[in-house]
Amino acid sequence: MTQTISRASLALWLDALTRDYTVIAPRRVDKLVLYKPISSAEEMVYDFGRTGLSAKEHFLPMMQSIVNIHKDQNGLILEVPRLGRSQVIFGLRPCDARALRVLDAVMLSEPADAYYGERRENTVTVGIACKEPQEGCFCTSMGGAPDDEKDLDILLVEMNDGYAVKAVTDRGRALLAGASLSEADAPPPVSKAPEALQLPTLETWQGRFNEAYWARLSDRCLGCRLCAYVCPTCYCFDVRDYAENSSEIKRLRCWDSCQASGCYRLAGGHNPRPTKRERLRQRFYHKLVYYGQRFQVDLCVGCGRCVVQCPANIDIREIIADVAGQ
């Protein structure tokens, strides 16, 4: 037997959830579909292949105050901002859910990043399996699958006039308490998975570090940083103080990118990664070598966003094949 929910019941359930949670779901924003808060199920887009950005921003916001500083004659008061409400992320793809587990490794390792931790702890994830791969998808090469449930609280699989529903965790079961579920005899349809690439060995990566390949590849790179911003696992951040006036200051952390020319530059002028060659190489070694050495999981989930959005057609799948090849 398969538990199911009709589209109509799903909409009622989502509307009910908005009373207690910030509900974040795929929603049209200009010409893009993005994970954004919705106030009713009507705003949600059901037929989206892949959102323009992942749901990363709801765990590591693009810009977030990490200390509010209030300054007056009596001195300084430092205040730590908190998340107001628990959140539900609806319509997460399994690769984007896997990205959260990948991020947990760095953000929750000691000393844990409490801002990320607070959001992780107060978020329930409801995923929707992918029916078929989109252009650029390679989740199965990075340890994921289009219907992988293991990093979600609830997994939905599209069928007929609704979805098959599987509560994966106790929190998922609790969230479903208010949903009107039915049962169907037929199992949900099976997802079509992208073909898996052959990954290079650690020795192959290490042997190719000094090759001219990286300089040639970086000739094409515009240094636009889009790849880091659309990536569900890129976590590097910058910190800046922003003074709203002489007494109210926010210490903001913002997404950063290894492709920014000043990313590694020291105040004195020395730059350990001075050209695009070193910075582009750092991107792929960090994702596919260093992070795994440190945390036993790669810093990529194969979502394909950088593949389809790079204006210079730099394709991580091609790089994997080039490094593995010959």
């Binding site: 730590v80 000393p111 409490a114 107060n122 079961r173």
Partner: peptide
């Protein structure tokens, strides 16, 4: 179980 969790993380930490 309530799927809503009250924040328990100590934010007064590393930053």
């Amino acid at each position: 179980m309530d799927a809503r969790l009250l924040p328990t993380v100590d934010l007064d930490t590393i930053f």
